[in-house]
Design a binder for these strands. Structure first.
Lengths: 342, 342
DNA sequence: CTGAAAGCGCTTACAG
DNA sequence: CTGAAAGCGCTTACAG
């Protein structure tokens, strides 16, 4: 029962064992059954392959076919809880048809984005899902120029001739404001996400417009430079320097909301007694915090899954016209919002 | 400014442009500078490569060199907050030297583990980091048999002749119990993680031994079949059926602790007034819950990073003897633990 | 320092 | 249905 060699079995080894040409083995073992090999030979080959513990060398196959059955995914940071479900959605859908995914963290740094794209191209990825897009994004431009199939997820660029699976931000903000206005809040502030991202930008825009529509002060807007708690805290403090009559804040994301809550705690503002707050993308476990954070849930797993499906279609050449899917978010009211204090 | 063709530039294209043999280009562009090419030629080649937008085809390079500069990572589920930091730690350390990582979710199903390993082998990964190990694990055996370099992270197998970066579970449990005993708890229960995992098994063992050492009842132990909140809740209910005099519970993980807390809430037990509870691996945001969960922090990012370093050493042939690193955890006392009620 | 050749393990037109 | 050949884009002994 000793193994003869540590070398992995190749197609030639099984060909030899069966006594056929290695091209016949290749044909017998490849799934597309256009080239018919006689069933008896197929069976012999399969048996031999099994016996030798043969499995195909995907890198040789990739080189020859000039496709890799791999896609890339660009995210800012795996440790941001928004992204794991998106990635899992992507993985589950592409893996079911034999693709694998390579993810890279870019920390929102353009240099790392470039490097990651290069690396992925070097590995001949067939397409890429981009969760890091800024409204004007050199990476997106490069994909277009180099004709790399791509789809954006979560964040959008300003141009609309791209494939994207994003959130109906308008709806997100409107349902949030409806909720707050119903609770009789009038002085409502917004700690917006970075304006160079579509999510930050669109929510801030809708916020102003919808406030105006309701004849409410639309200018209580402060910008957070990143979707982080630190920036949320900074934003809230800045807001306090400008105005302290607000009774509610709409945060650009959950992480921003956490920062706001921290900053409020520092100055003795109670949530929701003094100020109500709504978060932005419903990351896990925040339902268990004190107070449980009201937030706008977005279908992260689903978005990843859809983005993957679209990308696969583009790769297969089945999709010509760009598609922008806007997924419906859902306001989840918990304990961080309450009627406006009088 | 029109591109001549969509074809990616190859080493031959730049060779032609410079007027040298393509092997010279290969030498000039490869980082290992043993084969000296005259600086002037190198410069010309670099210029030409730049001009053509050349970048190496890693899959061709992989095929030829029979190494892929890729490693695999097996995790149960990306959406479990324990794993993203581990993966990030792995990625950051291997990417800095040009490796990429391919992760696969196995959902703790052996079939998926097998499939993932196959896929990774097909892609010629040079080694694999395994975060899914059970105490007896066919995947680990297979890696040994096939001589695939691997290192375990977080979970260990029963055999000790392997590389692993894990937690000092003994210390984790002892510091937890010290804390609880100091708070005058005497009836302490344990909702253990799955006994087929080293973490579940070791913590339960230490729990019993250390309780005995303190002349406390060591048998208030119930097993959760998975590291999930659902299983934690089930465990707690089962415990209540056996005994309801306990004043503290040591949970096998944070997720298990969350389930316990839910189950306690259902029957009107207050944390920490009636029962104190300590979680198991300090996942993010639980410091913000109500009550903030006391937990044993483990250095997840660091563990990933260390595991990657060890794996890289094994791959480089620089490590002969197996290494088991036990990382020090740290009890973080928050508000879910309080003096025992009288 | 540079060139020419061989080969990594597959796939796929082209014949038969 | 099957074989023989060529080639994917690199790397690397072997000469010179």
């Amino acid at each position: 029962m000793k193994k003869k060699s540590r070398r992995k079995a190749t197609i030639r080894d099984v060909a030899e064992l069966v006594g056929v040409h290695h091209s016949t083995v290749s044909r017998a073992l490849s799934r597309n059954k256009q080239s018919k090999i006689s069933p008896s030979v197929v069976r012999k080959i399969e048996r031999a392959a099994e016996k030798l513990g043969y499995f195909p060398n995907l890198v040789a196959s990739s080189l020859k076919q000039n496709r890799s059955f791999a896609i890339g995914v660009l995210i800012p940071d795996l440790m941001n809880p928004v992204f794991p479900p998106i990635i899992r959605g992507i993985q589950d859908t592409v893996e079911s048809i034999g693709y694998t995914v390579i993810t890279a963290n870019t920390d929102d740094e353009e240099r790392k984005e470039q490097e990651a794209l290069r690396m992925m191209q070097g590995r001949s990825i067939e397409g890429v899902i981009i969760a890091t897009a800024r409204r004007e994004d050199p990476i997106v431009e490069e994909c277009i120029k180099r004709e790399i199939p791509f789809v954006l997820v979560n964040r959008m660029v300003d141009r609309v001739d791209v494939n994207a699976v994003i959130v109906d931000e308008d709806f997100a903000v409107r349902s949030t404001l409806d909720h707050l206005i119903n609770l009789k809040h009038r002085r409502i502030a917004h700690i917006a996400g970075p304006p160079h991202t579509s999510t930050g930008f669109e929510r801030a825009n809708t916020f102003k417009n919808y406030m105006r529509l309701h004849n409410l002060e639309p200018d209580l807007v402060v910008v957070a430079d990143k979707f982080t708690a630190e920036e949320g805290a900074r934003g809230l403090k800045k807001l306090l320097g400008i105005d302290n009559s607000f009774t509610a804040v709409v945060a650009g994301s959950d992480l921003i909301a956490l920062g706001c809550i921290d900053a409020m705690a520092e100055v003795g503002l109670m949530v929701p007694e003094n100020v109500s707050i709504v978060g932005g993308n419903d990351i896990p476990f925040l339902s268990r915090m004190n107070p449980a954070l009201s937030s706008v849930a977005i279908p992260k797993y689903e978005m990843g899954s859809q983005a993957a499906k679209v990308l696969l279609e583009v790769i297969a050449g089945e999709r010509e016209t760009p598609l922008v899917m806007r997924m419906q978010p859902r306001l989840i009211v918990r304990n961080s919002t309450a009627p406006a204090p009088r």
